[in-house]
Simulated scan of single mutants.
Amino acid sequence: MHATIDDESDLSIRTMRSSVLHPDGGLTVEDRPVPTPGPGEVLIRVSAVGVCGSDTHYLRHGRIGTHVVETPLVLGHEASGTIVAVGGGVSRSRVGERVSIEPQTPDPASDESRRGLYNLCPHMRFYATPPVDGALCEFVTIGAAFAHSVPDRVSDEAAALCEPLSVAIAAIRKADVGMGDSVLIAGAGPIGLMCAQVARAAGATTIVVSEPDPDRREVARRFGATDVVSPGATVDPVGAFIDASGVEPAVIGAMSALRPAGRAVLVGMGTDTMALPVSLIQNREIVLTGVYRYANTWPTALSLITSGRVDLDSMVTGRFGLDDTRAALDADRIPGSIKAVVYPGMPRHPTSGTDRPTPTTDNT
């Protein structure tokens, strides 16, 4: 380690607090060793961690597809922080830099990485994907190239939410949405709302969001939707469809709204298989594809945030300390909740000596 924690001012830190998910569904806060950055890596003091649907799925079901929680796991992959140490080959000038973390470590020698599709690398190590630990702890390491510098005007929360924003950017790119285009988005959860914002920033003039919850439909209007409908409603033909719901009826129903040669992009992960209208896809030559994470999106994400074209700060509706991780993971069940954020470094309570800040929620 070339530089030490807090600009070489604190050599005593050897352990950190971590929120740990166990195979039986239990959550504990434990002391773990502070990781040491290897060659080409940086050590980051974590500032903020967004809660993703995959985190809650691991908590409630113990698995996502073939990824199973078989050993204790630290959740969290939407993260920001400050570089406090660097490994070999990384300039010490980066110590003190605020960063947004791209939480993946691909094999640079894989065929996919060499083609620029590093998100599809078969040897990928991704935060909070068993058995790789995530960021619900005080310190993490990541390759220096995946720690993206953020300007002071970008909040810790927005820097953390560059990760889900990157999913939306990847989806809009796949859908080939541009100036004057029309798009239908199924689902007004965080990803759906971010897709609406990115579509607006890309120049789409018709952005229809389909969502069963009337309150969420109104929220979608605030975040870029030009129109909102209930699932199953008839809409004018659109050039692109993005599913951010993972619900089979939503996907099948939206296919009929696509114009010939339209593009359908599947983002939501609700089921492993679903029936598709094959004759419709063939007869209209619809292009059907999926999105698996992202690649080469962070510069775009940060540009959208700093330019004001995308608003992530307003999406944060709940703030929690590390000891309240379970409440943060269950915040999606609170009416009006959009995005919960955990702060691993929240100060200890002055009387109890433990990190138990009062959770805050904003359901307006």
Rank of each mutant, 00 (worst) to 15 (best):
G308T: 11
S149C: 04
D111T: 08
V229P: 04
P260D: 13
A196T: 10
H61C: 13
I338A: 06
I305T: 05
C195A: 15
D176E: 14
G76M: 08
L322P: 00
V265I: 13
V341N: 08
S113K: 06
M255H: 10
I207E: 08
L161N: 00
P212V: 13
G224R: 04
I242G: 09
A128G: 07
T234D: 08
T36P: 00
A199W: 10
N119C: 03
A327L: 14
V49Q: 02
R293T: 14
A85R: 10
E163Y: 03
A79K: 04
D176P: 10
T105P: 00
P151H: 01
S303G: 07
Y294A: 03
V287G: 14
G76E: 08
I286L: 09
D6K: 07
V265W: 15
E248M: 14
T300E: 13
G116S: 10
S12G: 07
I286T: 11
I83H: 00
R63E: 11
I44A: 02
P151R: 01
L161T: 01
C52W: 02
D156A: 09
T317Y: 11
C162S: 02
F126A: 09
S256N: 13
D323C: 06
I281R: 15
A328Q: 06
V34Y: 04
H123G: 04
V228K: 10
L27V: 06
C121L: 03
A275M: 02
H349M: 01
V229F: 05
E78N: 10
I185H: 13
A225W: 09
V291Y: 06
C195Q: 13
V132Y: 15
S352T: 14
M1L: 10
A188Y: 10
G53S: 08
E285L: 12
A225L: 13
M315C: 03
N119I: 01
